[in-house]
Design a protein around this nucleic acid. Structure first.
Ligand SMILES: [Mn+2]
Ligand SMILES: [Mn+2]
Ligand SMILES: [Zn+2]
Ligand SMILES: [Zn+2]
Lengths: 135, 135
DNA sequence: TTTCACTTTAGAACAATTATAAACTAGTTT
DNA sequence: AAACTAGTTTATAATTGTTCTAAAGTGAAA
């Protein structure tokens, strides 16, 4: 993803392309592969890989703004820390608890043959498969 | 589950059957159906449904001891709060975000037809299916 | 350029959890 | 039965992850 696309992406989702947002967006979205991260890991990586300084609150604000705008998704992982994901399409995960790392699984790589019907007057919003790994 | 079984369960897992543990165990395990809870909800329920007082630290300690002993499992749910589960067998969940409630799905009620192989030298430890509900 | 709503920031506040260390108790030993 | 002791409970402090606050700064429109 090019810088111009990043500016477009920010503007089109009602986010002013500030210095901080552009830098964080470049760091997150100028990638070939999915990137999974926590606020803590992102904070450290930004400190290491960029020359700018970011208040922790800005990282929280920005990540949430990107999530709100649909540019990031949040993944449920064991622990009390939030994990975010640059892959916003419907997909699944491996989880390696040794390294605390998530690995994407394409939605098409898992086929569910039998599934129970939703209770009461409820409907199924989405199905998430989480595969825990061991050595 | 009878009180005698509870004493047995505690002793056999190396847990002294103290007044607090027995009371909490009775509350958790003398049930027909699975019980899903957070520490906060358990604290409130114990205050309401029992005549004893429990330090919050004791509830944390006890729940963790039960989990360590394999009498409770922990379920990953969106949010920064831990959910526990009296069903320690392999099973899946519906999650109703309206009520923040988990509903058990028997392992046999979900059949997966196609699943990717584990990466590198890793193996699959277990597969958790999480079905988000909407109205 | 001036303006102003939006943004960033440092720090405070908050929520969930874990650690601490003194008082207490279940179960063993005398 | 009294003493002993390792394990437990408790109140409270500390820690961790996250959100709030309000003052200073900035993007972009006028
Ligand atoms: Mn989590
Ligand atoms: Mn969670
Ligand atoms: Zn992913
Ligand atoms: Zn369950």
């Amino acid at each position: 993803m090019k810088k111009l696309d990043i500016l477009k992406k920010l503007r089109s989702s009602g986010l002013r392309p500030t210095k901080q947002r552009v830098e964080i967006a470049k760091f997150l979205f100028e990638r070939d592969k999915t990137f999974h991260f926590t606020i803590e890991s992102l904070d450290k990586l930004l400190a290491k890989k960029t020359s700018s300084k970011f208040a922790l609150a800005t990282i929280y604000n920005t990540v949430h703004a990107f999530k709100e705008a649909g540019h990031l998704s949040e993944v449920e992982v064991r622990g009390n820390k939030s994990y975010f994901d640059t892959n916003v399409s419907n997909h699944h995960h491996f989880y390696d608890s040794e390294t605390a790392e998530l690995i994407d699984i394409d939605a098409n790589d898992i086929v569910i043959q039998k599934i129970p019907k939703a209770p009461n007057g409820k409907k199924i919003k989405n199905v998430e498969v989480f595969i825990n790994l061991k050595n």
